[in-house]
Amino acid sequence: MPPFLFWIFALLMLVFGAAVVINRNPIASALNLVVSFLGLAALFMSLDAFFVGIIQVLIYAGAIMVLFLFIIMLLDLRAEKLRKINWLASAGGIAVALVLLTQILYVIGNLKAAQQTFPPLARSTIDDVRNVGLVLFGNYNLPFQIIGILVLVATIGIVLLSRHELR
């Protein structure tokens, strides 16, 4: 992939990611998040991870966002009222974020791997759906099964906490 495409998609993600936070209207935030996810999916595809890219679109941009929009609709959320901004807290937050950014840039700048160009990826002999499956159900089987328990606990929690009246 030509490098300028990377920059376009990365910029897309950043701009719309920021818009998610800045927007006061929950629906606008959710829609911005969709675009941000699409940018991420494009980045995955550019790394030849087609399966992960498509899953990103199907699950995140598709299913999860629809769920978000439904919840926003059901709860009838309105645009947030403009609150008074605590300037001291925001300044502190921005300062922390800048320090972290500088730190990341410094670490990446000193990384030996970041200064050399990589050879193009070798063509995989098996398709990546199979690859992901082999990793998940083969080597990483135990953590994968624990995620199953985790989802069960999360489901119980949602049922409990969203029950209107405990009966």
Partner: peptide
């Protein structure tokens, strides 16, 4: 003894604590 395992099991504990 593996970071993936550490992460997944910490999340299991944390999510049940959220509830």
């Amino acid at each position: 003894i593996d970071f993936v395992m550490i992460f997944v099991s910490i999340e299991l504990v944390t999510i049940s604590f959220y509830v």
